[in-house]
């Protein structure tokens, strides 16, 4: 078994832009951004990689918090941020390409975010 060392750093929302910028300067590439709903809060992971060294930044936000976009540093981040918005209902501020909820069109609004009312389940 080849265990990969994965360092996860939990940071404050305000530090996010600064830390991502540092990664960008050091030449890391953006692997993925993902969101996990844990109870009432959302955990957002930003993963970076450089020469197979995996680093992970984590912020924890509530549903109402506006998250700043990192698409200024990583142009390609718009796919993840739009996805996060469309599936979880996280508001992302300042995306370079903002689809306004039309990137992934779902029949139920924010399907992974708010609990789905029982009657609407297929």
């Amino acid at each position: 078994m080849t265990t990969e060392e994965q360092l996860t750093t939990s940071i404050e929302l305000g530090q996010l832009i600064g830390r991502v910028e540092k990664f960008k300067k050091e030449g890391y590439r953006l692997v993925q951004v993902n969101c996990t709903k844990i109870g009432e809060v959302y955990e957002i992971n930003y993963s970076f990689d450089k020469d197979f060294v995996f680093r992970n930044l984590r912020i924890t936000v509530t549903g109402e918090t506006e998250v700043p976009s990192i698409s200024g540093m990583y142009w390609g981040a718009f796919v993840y941020e739009n996805e996060m918005h469309d599936l979880f209902g996280i508001q992302v501020k300042g995306m370079n390409i903002d689809f306004k909820g039309n990137f992934i069109r779902t029949s139920i609004r924010y399907p992974f975010g708010a609990a789905i009312p029982k009657g609407e389940q297929p």
Binding site: V31, Q32, N34, T36, I38, W75, G76, V79
Partner: peptide
């Protein structure tokens, strides 16, 4: 499981 997130290569290939 609480969460499984699958990031496929095509998603990351869309910006390029």
């Amino acid at each position: 499981l609480v969460r499984s997130r699958i990031r496929t290569p095509t998603l990351t290939n869309i910006p390029p």
